[in-house]
Design a protein around this nucleic acid. Structure first.
Length: 100
DNA sequence: CCTATGACCATAG
DNA sequence: CCTATGGCCATAG
């Protein structure tokens, strides 16, 4: 078990707790996992998730409420099924952002 | 060691 | 809205 694996697990655990119908930003996820200022790294961790993961990767957006994931259509479809709507590719963080 | 590259971010213009 | 800049940092070459 390497240190980097443990750090990634911290991210996965926080991600798993994000409830359906809400979203968080990469920066927030980084803070919640205990790595403030490392949003970029979090994005990298998510990019390594297997395609068939059960984790809600689609609930993570960039700071401006845009889906940055390569497969935007899929992420948007999943979010819409949870009641999260977007206007012009933009999601209102004010309305959906998760506040633990 | 150095450079390049990201599912990023805040700020400035 | 857009680009540029500086910061962040693991990974790859």
């Amino acid at each position: 078990m390497s240190q980097s694996d443990l750090k990634k697990q911290a991210v996965w655990q926080v991600l798993a707790k994000i409830p359906s119908g809400s979203v968080v930003t990469y920066g927030q996820l980084a803070v919640m996992a205990g790595f403030p200022g490392r949003a970029r790294w979090v994005g990298r961790v998510l990019s390594e998730l297997p395609a068939d993961t059960a984790l809600p990767w689609h609930r993570v957006l960039n700071a401006s409420g845009h889906i940055t994931h390569p497969n935007r259509a899929r992420a948007q479809a999943l979010l819409r099924a949870e009641g999260v709507t977007s206007v012009n590719q933009r999601i209102s963080l004010a309305s959906y952002q998760w506040h633990p």
